[in-house]
Design a protein around this nucleic acid. Structure first.
Length: 583
RNA sequence: UGGGGCGUCGUCAAGCGGUAAGACACGGGUCUUUGGAACCCGCAUUCGCAGGUUCGAAUCCUGCCGCCCCAGCCA
């Protein structure tokens, strides 16, 4: 039996550590994790990796996972973000139950620990300016110098720190620093700042505090207070681990969690840095944080991507310490895999051209039976109306088709899905532009439902919609935001990631014709438009009875591949020809 | 001789001294009332490189090479 069949998850180094820890009863056999976002922005697929890991391990080992807001810097944080983050985590399918925490809940405790550090003579109040502190810190290759304030007495430090808290000093005038080692090779250990003065109201504690703890101090203690066993974070915090351990060792806390670092997620054709995503929003490249092209959780939700697809994706990419870039094709695969199971099928013509079936009686209509999901009979069947005039996809007809084109062409017969075989008898074109205005066909009444009694085969089956029954709708075709697989890497040679924006990331189809059952489609619902892709009803722009659809992802398109290869071959041939002619 | 990490298929990624899993991508095929789905086949004689230890090395040792992170009173 394969691992998948047994429900076994693929091995990774963090799971191995946890399994070993349980075996050796290291944390009393418990597994308690946490997802600790700073509420200063929206969550994206990179955060989803962390969420799936933290909540996933908790679920897998019968532990629990906390949601903790790391809100120690009030200048950047807002309630709006905490609300959005909670919504996103829930939407992804996880529940923290009673365990919702805020670092700001612990401000009193942090303060006590800070005084304890001072009393142990392991911290001091420093009057150096930010610039001076930097200068004293030394460089990557040279040791730093000790602050002239490093040898203040415990009493003086305690007094100064209390006055810092009381608001006697201005922002930046003094800081509390840990007393460690100014010659340490790890810069984080060169007497790091522990508390800074900020006369800024906090979104939760208001004006209670004018000093706020730094990440390194607050994070390890938050973890410890909550009894976290495994504190997972990204690679760039590796250098902070000695400090994480130092604080907990000095303060002799009873719970000392283990910090484990893993590589962040990177995706091809995508950027995930908050700073850059902000640019996309602020410069109006996208319509907002929840634009369906954004890699944010809210954007993906609006795009129609099911949470199960994101969860599955995050489990399949694995966890390691190697910095890597995952092919976005894997995400797309996970989306299709989920939607193929879950999305009802429906017919919609995005770029319609009219077909008149000459031998079908005028004024007659009939109902044809269509299957809602061939993957799952429980989806049932529905009726779709048929009549003499229908719309088909403009790209499903070619006047002069290449070899492997199986669709409609003059003299050719195709099947209308769930309906009849039709044969093209001619086209009517616009006199001036030459554009095809109408395709003329005949149908074979004996093929009703799509089977021919005489056993005659057709290569192509195309989708359609009855002209008089269809309704008009707007459909937005989304594609990758960037047309370069590594917009960041490419930008290093002087340019910017903005140079690699895909000009075709959004194409609005304004005159689509959809089957009538879609008229009352509910916002958020995802359908498969047969042969076209998966489309979801937009939550913002749809109105009752007038849905707007977003394309979530296309279907795999073998024909497009054949076509592309064909075109490349043509290109090569003509290039060769030109070369030959030049000689 | 600053400190810390990482190098296994095009991309992720298992592997923990017994002779290179799996997934995506890619290529080929079967089937098909979605050129979808499903199914089948193929896809690393070799693990950054070079030595060494061993009956046996991706796994252990030594030395190179390459890439990433760190000098916020951000997280």
């Amino acid at each position: 039996m394969s691992k998948k069949e047994k429900g076994e998850k693929p091995s990774n180094f963090i799971r191995n550590i946890i399994i070993e820890d349980i075996k050796s009863n290291r944390h009393g056999g418990k597994v308690i994790t946490r997802f600790p976002p700073e509420p200063n922005g929206y969550l994206h697929i990179g955060h989803a990796k962390s969420i799936v890991m933290n909540f996933g391990f908790a679920l897998e080992f019968n532990g629990r996972c906390h949601l903790r807001f790391d809100d120690t810097n009030p200048t950047k944080e807002e309630q709006e973000y905490v609300d959005a983050i909670k919504e996103d985590v829930h939407w992804l399918g996880y529940d923290w139950g009673e365990h919702l925490y805020y670092a700001s809940d612990y401000f009193d405790k942090f303060y006590e620990y800070a005084e304890k550090l001072i009393i142990m003579d392991k911290a001091f109040v420093c009057d150096l300016s930010p610039e001076e502190i930097r200068a004293y810190r030394g460089t990557l290759t040279e040791p730093g110098k000790e602050s002239p304030y490093r040898n203040r007495t415990v009493e003086e430090n305690l007094d100064l720190f209390r006055r810092m808290r009381a608001g006697e000093f201005k922002d930046g005038e003094r800081v509390l620093r840990a007393k460690i080692d100014m010659a340490a090779g790890n810069l984080n250990m060169r007497d790091p700042v522990v508390y800074r003065i900020m006369h800024v109201p906090h979104h939760r504690t208001g004006d209670k505090w004018c000093i706020y703890p730094m990440y390194d101090f607050a994070h390890c203690l938050s973890d410890s207070i909550e009894g976290i066993t495994h504190s997972l974070c990204s690679l760039e915090f590796e250098d902070h681990r000695p400090l994480y351990d130092w604080f907990l060792d000095q303060l002799q806390v009873e719970c000392h969690p283990q910090q484990i670092e893993f590589a962040r997620l990177n995706l091809t054709y995508t950027i995930l840095s908050k700073r850059k995503l902000i640019r996309l929003v602020e410069e109006g490249v996208v319509a907002g944080w929840d634009d369906p092209r954004m890699p944010t959780i809210s954007g993906m939700r609006r795009r129609g991507i099911p949470p199960a697809a994101i969860r599955n994706f995050c489990e399949r990419i694995g966890v390691a310490k190697k910095e890597s870039v995952v092919d976005v094709a894997l995400l797309e695969h996970c989306i299709r895999e989920e939607l193929n199971r879950a999305a009802p099928r429906v017919m919609g013509v995005l770029d319609p051209v009219k077909v008149v079936i000459e031998n079908y009686p005028e004024g007659v209509e009939e109902e044809l039976e269509a299957i809602n999901n061939p993957e799952d009979p429980s989806f049932g069947i529905r009726n779709v109306p048929f009549s003499r005039e229908i719309f088909i996809e403009r790209s499903d007809f070619m006047e002069d088709p290449p070899k492997k084109f199986f669709r409609l062409a003059p003299g050719r017969e195709v099947r209308l899905r769930y309906a009849y075989f039709i044969k093209c008898t001619g086209v009517i074109k616009d006199q001036e532009t030459g554009e095809i205005k109408e395709i003329r066909c005949t149908y074979d009444p004996a093929t009703r439902g799509g089977d021919s009694p005489d056993g005659r085969k057709v290569r192509g089956t195309i989708h359609w919609v009855s002209a008089s029954h269809a309704f008009h709708a707007k459909v937005r075709l989304y594609d990758r935001l960037f047309d370069h697989p590594y917009p960041d890497r490419a930008a290093k040679n002087g340019g910017s990631f903005m140079d690699f924006l895909n000009p075709n990331s959004l194409k609005t189809m304004g005159s689509c014709m959809l089957e009538p059952s879609l008229k009352d489609a509910q916002p958020g619902k995802v359908y498969q438009f047969e042969r076209m892709g998966y489309f979801c009803v937009d939550k913002h722009d749809s109105t009752s009875g007038s849905p707007v659809f977003n394309r979530t992802v296309t279907l795999r398109d073998t024909w497009a591949k054949i076509e592309k290869r064909f075109r490349q071959q043509q290109g090569q041939k003509s290039r060769k020809k030109r070369r030959r002619n030049r000689k």
